[in-house]
Every structure is written in structure tokens, then in C-alpha cells.
Design a protein around this nucleic acid. Structure first.
Lengths: 344, 344
DNA sequence: CCGGATAATGACAACGTTGTCATTATCCGG
DNA sequence: CCGGATAATGACAACGTTGTCATTATCCGG
């Protein structure tokens, strides 16, 4: 049923160790034998058994831990990770954590996973990746990981961190609204435990400041990264004579909720109100009007984080090969669509 | 670092085989020894090594194969599967296939995966689960699986199949439109390789027939399960004096595209046109107007399919324990929202 | 063409577990 | 109390691979 290295060896007329050498691309195998083995591999459709390798200590399994309820975000990340795993012949174990869990609980869950499944390393995404308590405990426990975070500058552990410059992208989006002559621009924030909330808010503030626009305290409205939270804030913020002319929603979900609220109140978007989001989710493309937003290449970012982890894992066996970390920063790209227009 | 069975054996003063017996709850171990071993296990915090077990053929790993680009669908399924895996202490390997691949290519990929990762069984979702060629080849190859399909009645292999009665749900949705006095109801179909397309179409046709409404041939428009396909069909279908008063979109993505097209043409939904979808995706709740649709409890369905697989895998070792298969059918539930109103 | 060096190949143990069979301990009837 | 039956325990092989070391083939300088 299952083709093993020994059957390949027999067909090729060599010892199974030689087959192992060919499979692992070790050198010191004569061209003739190598070719014979490769043919046998092809003919029998041989696939190395990952389990046996794992038992020998060659764990090629990484874990993807997340506690983010945004399914579009997660699946895009997942696909980027899986693609890189496949290229490198790594296996992936997926583990969603409850977003309501405490840092301690989440940490324990992660440790249990790594032990049970002999996971060699982890890819961490926000907000877990930005939780200092969890990160430092993992570090102390000697668990390898790379992480994706929101940061406008390289973090201290940049060699294992991909950082996304939400701040600058948010600055650009805010400036786009300001250039359209908006002045009363409200900011609907995301979950406080996501670093991106703070970064995007900072970008918004900086753009307002640089353009000498005072920020009334009631313009900044805190909440969560959800449709419901956007809708609620939209209802209260927009149901007022002194309502803003534009709303910068911290992500597309919030923007969707805000848009919904505007419609409930009979406010036309974008004629009477501009709304911008962040994420380039499918909704932002499919809604009416389509949303001005910032595009994060999440699959690419996740793939990069995965590759980084794999490099890190293999360089720990043969050191000196560590990555330069020059290019771990990403800048989300503003995409102007139909939901933002100059105020009338 | 990692505690093995031998260390437990040494501490307990028994052979490692006895520890194995205790761990696996085999009988024929004296109470006294058993207790000593259990104490040693506790003291050392011993965890059986999944990899070694897997190598011995005790695979507790199942595979989730899909080639469906709908991320909301996939992640909901994934969560249902993962939850059941965790309850049963199974591991999950996730494998997305290219939706453009041929049946042969997909089959080869699946076989490669099962060999590489020593997967004990698979959970298959549409359209792979409905591809007769793939299914029968897997069967022939002795690969265990359960599948989720669209079918209005129990399929032949019901003992390993969860079936969703899309037909009946589509009948109900169509009837809802008919009860609202719609007569010119157009049907925007999904991908032909998804059985659900045909089933939902059949439900639509049956409802029309039972209400003595003739189906003009141009009312049924084929296409794909995508936003773009919905938008294109919307543009051509709606840009006509004799346009329908309602459109039954085969899923929410198509409905979203159709809604977009209607807006481009200045047609008000639901006042001038009713649009209904299928799936209860987040979009259907968040769009304006929100979409009348049919809710499929995909996480529950996926969890059920997973449990079924696990039962199947364990009953194959001790037979006679097979499941009765009485309750493998699901009926999507119609949810009436704002996008459907009687025509003016 | 010989012999030492090096390159190529192979034999075997090991990873941590479970299955098979052998060995030892215990039981029980006469 | 003996001996055969059965229960309890253990020794060892095996899963499919990689690492270590030994063996064999090839090369190359004199």
C-alpha cells in the first residue's frame, strides 16, 4: 500500500541509505546511482513518511495559533502559511484559541499543543503576537516562534518579527480625507488589545496635527473591531446636528457597521458622509458604495513569517546562516474607492 | 526534556511494556502495579508521544481537504472540525487544493497527503465530496473518509455521508417569493460541479411548477458562485424592460453581486426588485438591505462529519459498533430579512 | 602498477511507541 | 502439596526514517 524507502531501494538496486541520501539531496552519491534512484522514486511515487522523520527529531511541523474572530483575516493568513509550508515540505497544525481567554490560559494551551504535537515552531498573529506576557513566557520556555505585529518601526526582536506600518498607512488615509477638504473627521477605534488600533489612531492624530486640524475629544470613539460596534457607534455619532463629514473606521468591519448605521439614519454615503475602512476585505469591494481602505497583503505577510520561522528553525542547527532582517516591514497600500468624496 | 515511557517504567520499577498497558487502559495489569505506574506518570507529567504512535499505525490524525474558495464557508467548517478533533484528541491536517485542478490531479494530491502525513481519514466537502470519480478512487484505494454533500435524500453511502437538503430549502425560499406575489422569478445558478446548484435549482423549479408558474427559459441563468458572476448576470438580466421582479441567487456571493448590479442600474432593492441568497454569510447580515437567505449550520455539520469519521475509524478496529446513520440529514433554515418584498 | 588517500556505499542502531510471543507468577482442583 | 491451567509481566521486533560508523570502490602520485 504505502511505498517505503526500502521498496525504492530494492527497485533501484541500492541500499535504502542511498535512497535516503538522494531524497535529502545529500552529496556524495554518484550521478548514475542518483538517477537510478530518482527514477525508482518517480515510478513508485515514493513520498517520505513525515511521521518517521518526526520521530527521528526532524520535526517539520509548525503551529498556527490565533484568537482572531475575523474569518477573512484568518483564512488569508492560513493560506499564506500553508503555501509556504508546502514549498518547504512542512506540516501545519492549526489551533484557534478562545479570544476571551486570559494570557495565562492561552499560554498553557500553546504549551500543551507544542508538546502533544511535537511542533517545532509557531507563527503568531495579533493579538497574541502583541501580548508581551505570552511572548516573554514563550521565549523563556524556549519555544521558537515568529510573529506578525503592528508597528511603525522595527521592534527589538526584528529578526523574528514581521511588522506592519499601520501608522503610516493610517496617516495617508487621513491625509486623503483632509485633501478632500474634510475637517471634522471622526475615528472609530478597534480593540485596545490589538496594537494596530493604537498605531492607526496615532497615524490619524499625526495627520490631523500636521495639517493643523484640532481634534475634538468626541471625534475619537473607542470600541471593537466588529460590525456591531461600528453600527452602534455610527448610530450615536451620526444622530446629531454636529456630526462629522467623514469617519475613519479602524477596519472594514467597523466601516460596514457604520455604513449600515448611516443608511438607517437616511444619510447618503458618500454624498453626505465619507467612510473609509482598513483591510481590503471582500466586503470593502462588494459593498455599495465600495469602501476606500488600506490593503494589507496578509497572505504574503503570513508566508513571509512562515519562511522566517523555517529559516530560523534550520539555522539553529547550522548557525551563521541567520537572516539579515532588512526587509521585515510592510506598508499597507491605500486604495481609494467610492466611499470617500469631498464634503458638500 | 521530553519524558518517555522508559523513564516512567524505571521510576515505577516495571518494564516499559507495562507502562504502555496502563497508558492504553489495557486490562491484565495488577492493581498495585497499575497504581505505581499511574503515580510515576503523574510525577513525571508523562505525555504519550503522538508521533511514535502514529508510526506504529495508530494514527490519530485526520485531514481536511477542500477546494472551495469561499473563505467564510471554509473557516466555519474548519472550526467545527477542529472542535470535534480536540474533543477526541485527534490532530488535524489542513489541505486546500487548487479549485482549477482536474479530478486526477486532486486525487493524486489527496493520496500524497495521506501517505506523507499518515492521515487516518478525511473529511471531504463540496465539490470534492460530490465528485464521483474522486470518491470512487479513494474508496478503491482503501482511504477512509466521510463527506458532506448536497442531496435531498439519503445517498447510498449514508453511513459515511452528511447530506444537506438544499432542494427543500430552495423550495421554501421560492415559495416565500411566490407568496409575496412574485411571478417573474429569475434563478442565478452556481457552479455546475457543486451539486448544491442543481439541488437548489430543482427546488426552485418544483416550487414554480407546484404553483403553476411557467418558467421562461431565460429566467434560469447559469454562472459561478462568485460576486463577479452575480454582478455580470445582474447587469444583463436587469437591463431590460421585461426584467424579473425577484432574483433567487444560488448563494450570498452571487446575491451580493446582483445587488451591486441593481444599484449600478439605479434599481432599488427591495422596492423595485427582490433579491434572495443562500448561506447566511456575514455579508447577508451586513449588507443594505440585509439579505433573505437560508442558514446552514456549517460548523455543526462539519463537526458531525468529523465525529462520524472518528467513529468509523475506531469501529473498524472493533466492528459491530457502526453507527445507525439515522440522523445524517440537515435542512437549511430560511431567514427572511429585508431584501425581499412583494412587487409593486 | 602499487598503496595510501579519499570518495561512495552500506550495515546497523536509534527515535518512542505497540504487537507478538515467551517467560514467570499465581491459582486451583485433586 | 503437586501439576496443569491461566493470569501477569517482560523481551524483543517492528513502524520508516536519519545518523554513525564501517566497508568497499575509486583515484592518483610516485
Amino acid at each position: 500500500m504505502k511505498v517505503t524507502i526500502k521498496e525504492v531501494a530494492e527497485l533501484a538496486g541500492v541500499s535504502f541509505k542511498t535512497v535516503s541520501r538522494v531524497v535529502n539531496e545529500e552529496d556524495g552519491v554518484k550521478t548514475e546511482l542518483r538517477e537510478r534512484v530518482q527514477q525508482a522514486i518517480k515510478k513508485l511515487n515514493y513520498q517520505p513518511n513525515i511521521t518517521a522523520r518526526r520521530l527521528r527529531g526532524k520535526s517539520a511541523t509548525i503551529g498556527f495559533i490565533y484568537n482572531n474572530p475575523n474569518s477573512n483575516y484568518v483564512i488569508t493568513m492560513l493560506h499564506g502559511i500553508l503555501a509556504t509550508c508546502r514549498e518547504n515540505r512542512y506540516e501545519l497544525v492549526v489551533h484557534p484559541c478562545d479570544s476571551k481567554s486570559s494570557a495565562d490560559e492561552t499560554y498553557d494551551e500553546i504549551v500543551a499543543l507544542t508538546q502533544r504535537s511535537s511542533v517545532a515552531g509557531l507563527v503568531l498573529t495579533p493579538p497574541i503576537s502583541e501580548n508581551f506576557e505570552i511572548i516573554s513566557k514563550l521565549e523563556k520556555a524556549g519555544i521558537k516562534f515568529t510573529r506578525i505585529v503592528s508597528s511603525s518601526e522595527p521592534p527589538k526582536d526584528v529578526e523574528r518579527t514581521i511588522y506592519i506600518d499601520d501608522r503610516r498607512a493610517a496617516y495617508q488615509i487621513t491625509e486623503h480625507l483632509i485633501n478632500q477638504k474634510h475637517r471634522a473627521i471622526s475615528f472609530f477605534n478597534g480593540d485596545p488589545e490589538h496594537h494596530s488600533s493604537e498605531e492607526r489612531l496615532d497615524g490619524y492624530k499625526a495627520a490631523m496635527r500636521d495639517n493643523n486640524i484640532p481634534i475634538e475629544s468626541n471625534l475619537i470613539v473607542s470600541g471593537e473591531y466588529t460590525f456591531e460596534s461600528g453600527m452602534q457607534r455610527g448610530k450615536t455619532t451620526l444622530d446629531s446636528d454636529s456630526r462629522p463629514t467623514a469617519i475613519f473606521a479602524c477596519n472594514d468591519e467597523i466601516a460596514a457597521g457604520t455604513l449600515f448605521a448611516a443608511r438607517m439614519l437616511g444619510i447618503n454615503v458618500p454624498e453626505q458622509l465619507s467612510i473609509v475602512g482598513f483591510e481590503d476585505s471582500p466586503f470593502s469591494r462588494q459593498s455599495w458604495p465600495s469602501l476606500t481602505t488600506a490593503k494589507q497583503p496578509n497572505d504574503e505577510i503570513a508566508g513571509h513569517a512562515t519562511q522566517l520561522l523555517i529559516d530560523l528553525l534550520s539555522s539553529s542547527s547550522k548557525p551563521g546562516d541567520a537572516e539579515k532582517a532588512h526587509n521585515h516591514g510592510y506598508l499597507p497600500e491605500m486604495i481609494v474607492r467610492e466611499s470617500s468624496l469631498p464634503p458638500r
